[in-house]
Computed example of a mutant assay.
Amino acid sequence: MQLERLAIADVVKIVPPRYGDDRGYFSEVFKDAWFRSQVEDVGFVQDNQSLSAAKGTVRGLHYQLPPFAQGKLVRCITGAVFDVAVDLRAGSPTYGRWVGTELSGRSGAQLWIPVGFAHGFATLEPDSIVHYKVTAPYSAGHDRGLLWNDPGIGIAWPVGADDAILSEKDRKQPPLAEIAPSDRFSLYVERT
């Protein structure tokens, strides 16, 4: 598997190899021992999948607070998305900064987003299916979010505010400057 650390080094793009012929391809998309040794020593407890019917659908920016904070391994099975992670780790040198990359069914690329980040994506094609593994189960009481187009973060989304298709919940999320200190990740630990 190819591994690429993005501008925020704890966020990792992973591209599993594909072995193909005229029938199609075969790919091992996840190996527990490899992931634990090369990316992060975590276990996954739940798999989620979403279908976004229209191009320009935006989901996010979402995160959960401890003890249900989630690391996410995200991949796009069909279609394509622009996937984003925003650093919410107080004390981190990249606090409030974002990284993003395209994930598609064609490339098979995945994105590891560790605990302490908000996550979201915008669909680049209709009928995009996103699958993600998470390190903690969903908890409505710990569910939080950020305004997807917060100018203080400045994400270069591939869709404008007038064209984005959002849930009512995502439209009403607060900007980063307005989230309560208790809704931030209070401890940043530099990885060695």
Rank of each mutant, 00 (worst) to 15 (best):
Met1Pro: 07
Gln2Arg: 15
Glu4Val: 13
Arg5Ser: 10
Arg5Tyr: 04
Leu6Phe: 06
Leu6Cys: 08
Leu6Glu: 07
Ala7Asp: 14
Ile8Pro: 04
Val12Phe: 05
Arg18Tyr: 00
Gly20Lys: 01
Arg23Phe: 01
Arg23Cys: 00
Phe26Thr: 03
Val29Thr: 13
Phe30Glu: 03
Phe30Ala: 00
Lys31His: 15
Ala33Glu: 15
Trp34Arg: 12
Ser37Cys: 10
Glu40Thr: 06
Asp41Pro: 07
Asp41Phe: 05
Val42Phe: 06
Phe44Met: 02
Val45Glu: 04
Gln46Leu: 05
Asp47Phe: 07
Ser50Trp: 03
Ser50Ile: 10
Ala53Asn: 05
Ala54Asp: 14
Ala54Trp: 15
Ala54Cys: 12
Lys55Phe: 00
Arg59His: 05
Gly60Leu: 05
Gln64Thr: 11
Leu65Ala: 06
Pro66Arg: 11
Pro66Trp: 12
Phe68Arg: 15
Gln70Ile: 05
Gly71Thr: 06
Gly71Ser: 08
Lys72Tyr: 02
Arg75Pro: 00
Ile77Thr: 06
Thr78Leu: 12
Gly79Gln: 03
Ala80Thr: 09
Val81Gly: 06
Phe82Arg: 07
Phe82Leu: 11
Asp83Tyr: 14
Val84Gly: 03
Val84Arg: 02
Val86Ser: 11
Asp87Thr: 02
Leu88Pro: 01
Arg89Phe: 11
Ala90Pro: 00
Gly91Tyr: 04
Gly96Ser: 00
Gly96Arg: 02
Arg97Ser: 09
Arg97Glu: 08
Trp98Arg: 10
Gly100Arg: 00
Gly100Met: 00
Gly100Phe: 01
Leu103Asn: 09
Ser107Trp: 00
Ala109Thr: 06
Leu111Gly: 02
Ile113Glu: 01
Phe117Cys: 11
Gly120Trp: 01
Phe121Met: 04
Ala122Ser: 11
Thr123Met: 07
Pro126Ala: 12
Asp127Arg: 15
His131Tyr: 14
Tyr138Val: 06
Tyr138Cys: 07
Ser139Lys: 13
Gly141Ser: 12
Gly145Arg: 09
Gly145Asn: 06
Leu146Trp: 03
Trp148Arg: 10
Asn149Phe: 05
Asp150Ala: 11
Asp150Trp: 05
Pro151Val: 03
Ile153Ser: 06
Gly154Arg: 15
Pro158Trp: 01
Ala161Arg: 15
Ala161Asp: 14
Asp163Asn: 14
Ala164Thr: 05
Ile165Val: 15
Ile165Thr: 08
Leu166Ala: 03
Ser167Thr: 14
Ser167Ala: 11
Lys172Val: 11
Pro174Ile: 13
Leu176Ser: 12
Ala177Ser: 15
Ala177Tyr: 14
Ala177Met: 13
Glu178Leu: 14
Ile179Pro: 10
Ile179Leu: 11
Ile179Met: 10
Pro181Asn: 04
Ser182Lys: 14
Phe185Met: 12
Ser186Phe: 00
Ser186Glu: 09
Tyr188Pro: 03
Arg191Glu: 13
Thr192Gly: 10
Thr192His: 12
